[in-house]
Design a protein around this nucleic acid. Structure first.
Lengths: 224, 224
DNA sequence: GACGATCAGATTGTCAACAATCCGGTCAGC
DNA sequence: GCTGACCGGATTGTTGACAATCTGATCGTC
């Protein structure tokens, strides 16, 4: 399985994981201050460990620190989100290619099963479930590619923008297209057709990026 | 200019930068233990800061930490080096494309000047200088693309393998090909031909990866 | 009322001491 | 001679106290 986490079961790494989760899931808002003493108190750890965890998350891009002013949740700008989407696109296209090169029968069957569940979720109009399956699908492909370096990069990139992705999914007509795009990717991987898998993933994430851009523009319009 | 460093002028970030430099330049050997007290003493900082710096470098992939056993310089395996080279390839191809889209006349002139210096170094058979210009060239292209996210990723990836890159350059016939490949990249960017720049960079880094693979195999043979 | 000096509270940065753990060698027992 | 318990030095992990810095509020002056 996909294991891109630090293997150190350190207290500070533990805390970093919890904080990461809290930031990603939105329990801390962007720009919210992360006060060492409070966190130490809330998570029942020492302030030294809080400091270390914050430094790690800073390195990871989830948090920004300023000297003598502490840490706050990093706000990723729209521009940055697009940069991230673009980087993700090229890496994940590579991953899809490698997955197509390496997929065995068991893995192909798993992909097809997952695809069926995506389709079912789509037909039931259960977009929550669909979104979940979507994540699982991409992770399954990453697992097949078994490229630890790429997986680490993708995890970092995705964690920085998860909160924005929701919007992209909600574009009208997007789920139908998304379903078709995933179908193409799965077909290519199951046929061990590496170039097709790469370009299908490229197209898919290009569409995702465009949906994201539109969602962001719509949000900007709405602000006026 | 390329500024992918943490903007925090923290004492711990300072130290992290120094340690990073020391590791990259080989003053610390792979697998060498990094003892907190020694580092604190050597760099005249507090042990708490050493801990934070080590945690950051761990997150960055330059160092591994094990609970109660401290940190050591991470040894990247051959397999991993290839993964990294592959990831670098797709990202830097994207960067070349963006550079081609965005390059203005001043930047194009700078690229051409750099190219001339590369050629001069090649003709003088000064491979030290050539290697240096090579690095500058890639950085210059990154600067033009101005994609902070991609630049950050590339910096991390490259820092993990710099010590291996030397070997790749020393392959026989490699410098001549390298020079030609860089020429194609520069030409494409100067023509604002994005697809050509992307594919030229792809080809270049594919060749680099192959050279790296050969160098690694040669090293392995030599060990017997 | 606007502006700047000043102060208190909150927060981060630094430090040293202590506790917990690991690693290597030593020694008794078989 | 080999195995395994055991011990001491080395190193990491934890803690609390204190210093330095920032932030926002208050107050006096113009």
């Amino acid at each position: 399985m996909l294991d891109t986490s630090t293997h150190v079961t350190d207290c500070s790494s533990d805390l970093a994981a919890k904080l990461r989760d809290a930031i990603i899931s939105g329990r801390f808002m962007p720009n919210e201050r992360l006060i060492e003493a409070d966190l130490a108190n809330a998570y029942k750890v020492n302030r030294a460990n809080v400091r270390i965890a914050l430094a790690m998350l800073d390195q990871e891009g989830l948090v920004v620190r300023e000297r003598n002013r502490g840490a706050r949740v990093r706000l990723v700008t729209d521009e940055e989100a697009l940069e991230i989407a673009e980087a993700r696109r090229v890496i994940e296209a590579m991953v899809a290619r490698q997955a197509a090169e390496r997929a065995n029968d068991r893995q192909k069957a798993a992909l097809r099963a997952l695809m069926a569940r995506m389709r079912a979720a789509y037909e039931k109009q259960d977009f929550n479930s669909y979104s979940q399956r979507n994540v699982e699908m991409h992770r399954a492909i990453q697992d097949i590619a078994a490229n630890a370096t790429a997986n680490r990069l993708l995890q970092t990139l995705k964690s920085q923008v998860v909160r924005l992705q929701y919007r992209a999914i909600l574009q009208s007509g997007r789920p139908a297209k998304s379903l078709a795009e995933h179908g193409e990717i799965v077909d290519a991987i199951c046929a061990n057709d590496a170039p097709a898998a790469e370009s299908a993933m490229r197209r898919h994430l290009c569409a995702v990026k465009n949906a994201l851009r539109q969602a962001m523009q719509a949000a900007k319009q709405g602000a006026y």
